[in-house]
Write a protein that binds this DNA or RNA. Structure first.
Length: 528
RNA sequence: GCUCCGGUAGUAUAGCCCGGUCAAGUAUUCCGGCCUUUCGAGCCGGAGACGCGGGUUCAAAUCCCGCCCGGAGCACCA
């Protein structure tokens, strides 16, 4: 049996696969279907020559986990169908949701990190003339009007299902008003372009919705176009036009946009267009973290968080910094799918996925949190520990430490938590090193006597296994925890060769991402 | 309040359209065991759910009605 296994393993993987395909094709089949089962089919994908999806953020903040669903599902569905994935910046509010130049880039970076690189990119503030063109067309065709009513007065009318006085003015008059709007003859708030819908629609929010408004860009210049434009499209107008103009076939977005679809459908009818497939997924939350831009922005402004990548935030920047992998996030999102029900994600699931991704690939080191000294006496000779960087990969190498007793004694660091769990008379195994018998436990130190080297003996005695660092072969280490607390301790000397961005496992402590290496080590904690 | 949309174990999800094979599957979590020089991973076993009440039916997680609960929208925001 072993001989046969050996023979098979000696063959190259491609050869193994060929043989299986030849003799047991059903084995491969099963494997394949299981992997592809991941996402449910996209509705009506076959009705379109090419599937086109888009992610359309406002660059007024960094991205966070709440956007992961739109990004990953849009991207992955486009890829599954060999379609196109578009990134579109919706930066049409220079006043209330002011875009910030640095966020255009941070969003691009986040998408790249998430392995969701867009095929095309658009910025709405580049497209203002296009929106004007369609505004004019709608006006000309009597499908829109320039409304100069006071918002309050308009609301009263619309609630009563009555047209406001502006609605039925002839197209020529509308175009006249429109050019006055563009000329700056109206001030901010004095005129708005509305798309005609059904005044009797059961939802008042749908009736004659606003499409373009005036913003005083002298006062609130747009970061990209300055004061060049004073008339800016609202969400439903810009987004609705762009989705058609860019050939988007499938819109995947949060259910807060459900009413927006109804509104936009009226415009599509005016223009003789067909509305894309729209999927509205539920709200995504994660326990104990704010997934709201305004809360994040507010916390930053008030100094509650250090920065956009503060470990307490669920921004992609923060997750990245902690060593959460994009693969784990993708798994989480594919798991959740595109149901309309709200979901409350738990960090536990994210961590579990991340751990399984990381565990086979990352190297192991010892980090002693809250160190106390353990002095071991009675060591007969120098003893060398060779500890694998990964238990299942001896070929990756090892760290090597030699304890050299002076008058039979050596000093080691062990963690306070381990010290508290042991007491005089107990036997303890220092991993990969030797066994000791504890003699005295004090407040800051432990004294023990060398017992034996045999690991087997430790097992038989049921001795606890603890990790350690030789005093002198060490470096200070700070670990930023997810709650922004700092765990202080000592890492083994081999950690000096670590590089920023590496993710390692500190045994019996957890996975961390290295932030800085100099005389000391700084790392961010991911999870156990 | 009005207009929509939801509700399967602690969490997430499959099943619901096309009722039976669902005394409800999967992942994670928790517990136990095995394995292992980590309290990690792996392996084995176990715990844990159809919001409530009616109805239709031989049969309902699945269909119908009512209720309850949750969420979203009701901006000259996106």
């Amino acid at each position: 049996m072993n001989k046969i296994v050996g023979e098979v393993n000696a063959l190259p993987a491609s050869e193994q696969k060929r043989i299986i395909e030849e003799k047991w094709p059903e084995l491969l089949q099963r494997e394949k279907t299981e992997e592809e089962k991941r996402l449910p089919p996209l509705p009506n994908a076959e009705k379109y020559p090419m599937v086109v999806t888009r992610f359309s953020p406002n660059p007024d903040c960094v991205l966070h986990l709440g956007s992961a669903r739109a990004i990953i599902l849009s991207h992955d569905y486009a890829r599954i169908h060999r379609g196109k994935f578009i990134l579109r910046f919706e930066d049409t509010d220079p006043k209330l949701k002011r875009p910030v130049p640095e966020f255009y880039d941070s969003i691009r970076e986040d998408l790249k990190w998430l392995e969701c690189k867009p095929d095309e990119e658009y910025i709405q503030s580049d497209r203002i003339p296009i929106y004007y063109e369609y505004a004019e067309k709608l006006l000309k065709d009597g499908n829109a009007y320039v409304c100069t009513c006071q918002p309050q007065a308009f609301r009263m009318r619309i609630l009563a299902q009555e047209p406001c006085p502006c609605r039925n003015l002839p197209p020529e008059e509308q175009l006249e008003r429109w050019s006055r709007m563009l000329n700056g003859e109206y001030k901010e708030g004095e005129a708005v372009l509305r798309v005609k819908t059904d005044l009797t629609h059961p939802n008042p929010a749908v009736r004659d919705w606003p499409a373009l408004r005036i913003i005083d860009t002298e006062k609130f210049p747009h970061p990209r176009t300055g004061s060049k434009y004073m008339v800016w499209p609202l969400y439903n107008f810009a987004c609705g036009l762009d989705d058609h103009l860019m050939g988007v076939t499938h819109i995947i977005r949060g259910k807060e946009h459900f009413t927006n679809m109804i509104r936009q459908e009226y415009m599509y009818r005016h223009l003789g267009w067909r509305y894309p497939e729209a999927i509205h997924y539920g709200r995504l939350k994660i326990k104990g973290a704010y997934l709201s831009k305004s809360k994040i922005v507010q916390g930053i402004r008030e100094g509650q968080y250090w920065s956009w990548d503060d470990p307490r935030l669920a921004t992609f920047a923060a997750l990245r910094k902690r060593g959460i992998t994009p693969a784990a996030i993708r798994k989480l999102i594919l798991d959740v799918g595109l149901k309309a029900a709200d979901v409350v994600l738990s960090w536990e699931n994210l961590y579990a996925y991340n751990r399984k991704i990381l565990d086979p690939h990352v190297t192991r080191y010892f980090f002693v949190k809250d160190p106390v000294q353990l002095s071991v006496s009675g060591i007969p000779k120098p003893i060398t520990a060779r500890i694998r960087l990964h238990p299942e990969h001896p070929e990756w190498g090892f760290r090597e430490y030699t304890v050299t007793p002076e008058e039979g004694k050596v000093l080691l660091w062990i963690s306070r938590a381990d010290m508290e769990a042991i007491s005089a008379g107990k036997t303890v195994r220092l991993m990969e090193l030797f066994n000791v018998k504890v003699e005295k436990v004090e407040v800051y130190a432990v004294e023990a006597k060398f017992l034996s080297e045999s690991y087997q003996e430790a097992r038989e005695l049921g001795a606890p296994l603890i990790h350690w660092v030789i005093v002198g072969a060490d470096m200070p280490c700070k670990i930023i925890m997810p709650n922004a607390a700092v765990a202080e301790g000592i890492a083994e000397a081999a950690c000096k060769r670590l590089k920023p961005d590496m993710i390692v496992q500190f045994e019996r402590f957890g996975f961390v991402r290295i932030e800085k290496v100099n005389a000391g080590l700084t790392a961010y904690y991911a999870h156990k």
